[in-house]
């Protein structure tokens, strides 16, 4: 699930959202350079071609192109929620309620 993967990697959130657009002074030349380096096909063992980043991106775009629209947090996939009622997990939640013990 995208959210959990994201949570593990502490990626720059600006880049995550606006990454496809240019942030700051990333110039067009740089973009072009990336494209060029992608187009050089690496061969593994003379038989397989390595999947380039642009190809990966294209595949991802294709996959998402016609997905049904849904504004929920977990959107279409059924979440595997933690069992919040178990004692250890409850500790993280209890302070979100007015009845929880104050940490201060």
């Amino acid at each position: 699930m995208a959210y959990f993967e994201r949570q593990k990697t502490s990626k720059n959130i600006m880049k995550l959202v606006y990454g496809d657009f240019e942030i700051g002074n990333k110039s067009k030349e740089q973009n072009q350079k990336e494209l060029e380096s992608d187009s050089e096909e690496e061969e593994l063992g003379g038989l397989f071609k390595k999947v380039t980043n642009t190809q990966k991106k294209k595949q991802k775009q294709k996959d998402q192109q016609d997905v049904d629209e849904c504004s929920f947090f977990y959107s279409l996939n059924k979440p595997n929620l933690r069992d919040w009622t178990s004692e250890e997990n409850k500790q993280y939640l209890i302070n979100r309620f007015v009845t929880g013990k104050r940490s201060a």
Partner: peptide, 15 residues
């Protein structure tokens, strides 16, 4: 809280 995927694409569209 953490941004949902839907919000992320919405932010992109807003831009």
């Amino acid at each position: 809280g953490p941004l949902s995927d839907y919000t992320i694409s919405f932010l992109q569209h807003l831009k």
